[in-house]
Design a binder for these strands. Structure first.
Lengths: 116, 116
DNA sequence: AGCATATATACGGTCAAGCATATATTAATG
DNA sequence: CATTAATATATGCTTGACCGTATATATGCT
């Protein structure tokens, strides 16, 4: 698969999208409401940013019932995956991103395959 | 050294800056006129973009006589260096970036330590 | 000093990207 | 079918980034 490097970095250059991607890098698959809760942002904002990531092929979406799950596109070129991996490794421990993870971990009534 | 991840990716999200960084990743040190020639862009544009890279600590500048040389900041955090390395490996062979390199290689009267 | 070259900055204008609010769509449930 | 929950999109607005042109600064040379 091929992506445009300029668009790829533009995608990472927005804090909301970067936080989503960092969470997706550590959690495999998340639905919009989980991301909304973890980042503590309003739903249309999350949805809009996920749409731009999807339009660029950076994430895949999958509808299951009322939920839409997003994951990193496994067909991203190797260099793009490496960029995401190295970035997660490098900044994942910063307060902002750790808090997102713990907020998600503490979310009540998480939907998803995990629980059923 | 520490950098802001959002600003870092914003820096990579502009084609002029990305091309400069890709060239610097393969050439160690380049002056403004070499970059101007290689990318075939007007000088103030190159200069302005290099200034933003410098202000963010992504590159270092060094004046030598009438020339100002730029290089990747060796004190960038490891993850940022890895991102640049992986990106160069991944997209360096695309036409745009190869052409920049060959344009540079063919530049007449290149200044710099190389020749003296 | 005066000119030429290399580089940096200032200025004014344009356009894209992001935002919040409001509304539409889709699916589950009663 | 009506309602609720989850998600997506539309709208109007604002801000910031980038651009080209013009000008300033700095260095070297004669």
């Amino acid at each position: 698969m091929d992506i445009d490097s300029e668009l790829f970095f533009k995608a990472l250059a927005d804090p909301t999208r970067l936080r989503c991607l960092m969470l997706l890098a550590s959690e495999r698959e998340l639905c919009v409401c989980e991301l909304t809760h973890a980042l503590n942002l309003i739903q249309p904002k999350i949805s809009r940013h996920l749409a731009t990531l999807r339009d660029q092929g950076i994430v895949l979406d999958r509808r299951q019932g009322q939920w839409v799950y997003y994951q990193l596109n496994p067909e991203l070129p190797a260099w793009a995956k490496a960029v995401l991996r190295e970035t997660a490794r490098g900044i994942g421990e910063q307060k902002l991103f750790s808090l997102d993870r713990s907020k998600l971990a503490r979310m009540p009534n998480r939907p998803g395959a995990a629980c059923c």
